[in-house]
Design a protein around this nucleic acid. Structure first.
Lengths: 176, 176
DNA sequence: TGGTACATGTAACATGTTACATGATTAG
DNA sequence: CTAATCATGTAACATGTTACATGTACCA
């Protein structure tokens, strides 16, 4: 069995969620991932199902007794808690940006102005929707006193506003 | 041989770069990817080496005569040009955000204030460096009259400024 | 009681990353 | 001439995505 020294973000997120829930099955973790971290990190159910046995093999989580439908509850071990804490303050990975819209616009030489408009219109809608959702979440976080989740919300809001402003300014920028 | 109907962004980027270069080997494409699109879309050399024969199998690119060191020059076919144009204005994919810093801060319950400072400090430096680089690029794009690349640059600059401001405001946001 | 919806879990596949083998070029 | 460097290409692996098989609960 391979034993990589460091956690990747996906493994770490799994441990972090498990930390929060104390004990959880793969399905419960998947739901927690969706509600808690999906705005800034995506994990699929399948990944979690695959992760848990691997983490167990590395001694970072332990499996409890099989429950209904063969579902297995997992919990953090001391080693898992330690690995998570180490990851949390570790050297930040350089993120490779990945913006399909920008990729397309970088090839903008190949489309006419009306095509650009259509493309931008679709994105504007999507970003407006996300902005609205994040602002609603921010209110909820404020009320719940969840300061750390609040600032991640704030980040999302600022990001969406930045994108919307950029989309707004694009025609002007292109002709200047 | 599998024949997916639509291109993914990575295949499309390969075609787009090939479009620009008219004819290129895998290595040349990799260098173009690095210089032209790396700020908003990462592709590795290995991916390009893998992509090209697949694209050729789908009839989107054609291979020329083997050159020095067994390198093969590829060029777009008419079908490839068409596939690229279709992708360019196609339905935008919903992007899954992927921000490791936010993931960590979302688990901020687990670290002390000084650990947060260290984490933020590292990121601030990285973002300042990127900002400086992008601003230099913007000047170059302006001089070259590359309007589309200019606006992608502008996006990057606004993004970096947004992140830096957010990092700056974080302590205040956390205590409010 | 039939059937619709949902949840668990698996497997196949697509994409991204890393490490290496090989041959050419170049600097000393 | 030799060693270091660099470029091409390959292969193994890690991660992410999609589709499916199965079983359970709910509800008309």
């Amino acid at each position: 069995m391979r034993q990589p020294r460091d956690l990747n973000a996906t493994s770490a997120a799994t441990l972090g969620l498990l930390h929060r829930l104390r004990s959880a099955t793969a399905g419960e973790l998947a739901r927690a991932a969706e509600s808690d971290i999906s705005p800034f990190w995506g994990i699929t159910r399948s990944q979690i199902f695959r992760e848990l046995p691997l983490l167990a093999g590395r001694g970072l989580v332990g499996a409890g007794d099989t429950g209904p439908r063969g579902s297995v509850p997992y919990h953090l071990t001391d080693a898992g808690r330690e690995a998570f804490a180490t990851w949390l303050v570790g050297v930040p990975q350089v993120q490779q940006p990945r913006e399909e819209l920008l990729l397309r616009i970088g090839f903008g030489e190949h489309f006419g102005p009306d095509e650009l408009e259509v493309l931008l219109g679709g994105h504007r809608e999507a970003h407006e929707a996300r902005l609205a959702q994040l602002e609603a979440e921010r209110v909820a976080m404020l009320e719940a006193g969840e300061t750390y989740r609040l600032v991640t919300c704030e980040y999302g809001i600022r990001y969406e506003k930045m994108v919307l402003a950029w989309i707004e300014d694009l025609p002007k920028l292109l002709t200047s």
